[in-house]
């Protein structure tokens, strides 16, 4: 209808009118897609295989809570390990000692370039490769180590960036007060760096949570299943996808609040600037 009234002045359509029309087309397209999808979908089948009420009940009563707990424990341990190792690696990369820099760079490039699943497969074969190998705190030690090794490579780069983002004047002020290089790093640089790094670090934490779904590859007993493995087992034995969907939602229970938290922190950091 607007077409006919504006047709004579088509070439002189104002930017505002043009934007209006483009937006209208976009909305119309969206409505069409949604309607077609809704008509084409077999809602009954979808409901039965993805959201079967009895399967939801089964999942909620058969170990999902301990799986949630395990996912969280795996993540916390791996993230803690990754933070410590990542800080050491970051400091090595910034070291004045050449070999430290090379070793750290090699480690970081290697484990960042490698799919995490390869690291987990290697860990699953370790007992075969090295008979008698014992990693303490079974099975947590192995999981923390495997997840942490991968996480530390990413975290090291984030931490290095944070350290380098602290203004040079801060180190000069600390050193001019008589602090050693190490004291200046611990007391002045790192506290500021970690504060600046909170948003990216929280993102890394979310990545570790998701990577913990690969833990099943290492092989753990039924009591140590995390969310993905549990969902998969229940889905397989019941020939229904619902348990995996439920497990998926449980990830969101952990990650969504974290995402909100990151956004809050970023907004606060932006305001402080």
């Amino acid at each position: 209808m607007t077409d006919t009234t504006t047709a004579p002045a088509k070439r002189k359509l104002s930017p505002r009118r043009r934007a209006q029309r483009i937006r209208l087309i976009q909305y119309a397209l969206l409505v069409v897609i949604v309607v077609v999808a809704a008509l084409a979908a077999d809602w009954k089948a979808i409901g039965e295989s993805f959201f079967a009420p009895d399967m939801i009940r089964t999942t909620l009563t058969q170990g999902i809570w301990s799986a949630l707990f395990n996912t969280i424990i795996y993540t916390i341990g791996a993230f803690a390990f990754g933070m410590v190792a990542g800080t050491v690696l970051a400091l090595m990369r910034l070291s004045s000692v050449g070999p430290y820099r090379w070793i750290a760079s090699a480690y970081i490039e290697f484990f960042r370039g490698l799919p995490a699943i390869v690291v987990f497969l290697v860990f699953s074969l370790l007992p075969l490769a090295i008979p008698g190998l014992r990693i303490p705190l079974e099975p947590y030690g192995k999981v923390w180590l495997a997840l942490g090794i991968v996480a530390s490579a990413y975290l090291a780069e984030t931490i290095r960036g944070g350290i380098q983002a602290v203004p040079k004047g801060q180190v000069e002020a600390a050193r001019s007060l008589g602090m050693s290089a190490g004291q200046a790093m611990r007391k002045v640089v790192l506290p500021q760096a970690f504060r600046m790094m909170l948003p990216p670090l929280t993102n890394e934490l979310i990545l570790v949570i998701k990577d913990s779904s690969l833990v099943y590859i290492i092989g753990v007993g039924a009591t140590n299943y995390e969310l993905t493995k549990l969902g998969r087992e229940l889905s397989n034995s019941n020939a229904n996808v619902t348990p995996l969907v439920v497990a998926g939602f449980f990830y969101l229970i952990i990650t969504l609040p974290l995402s909100v938290l990151v956004r809050r922190m970023e907004a606060r950091a932006a305001r402080a600037r």
Partner: peptide, 20 residues
């Protein structure tokens, strides 16, 4: 040098206070 700097105070153009 760390010991020597204890006796030498310095004030910078950009203040360089510790913000935290």
């Amino acid at each position: 040098i760390d010991a020597a700097r204890r006796h030498i105070g310095m004030v910078f153009q950009q203040f360089n206070l510790f913000p935290q």
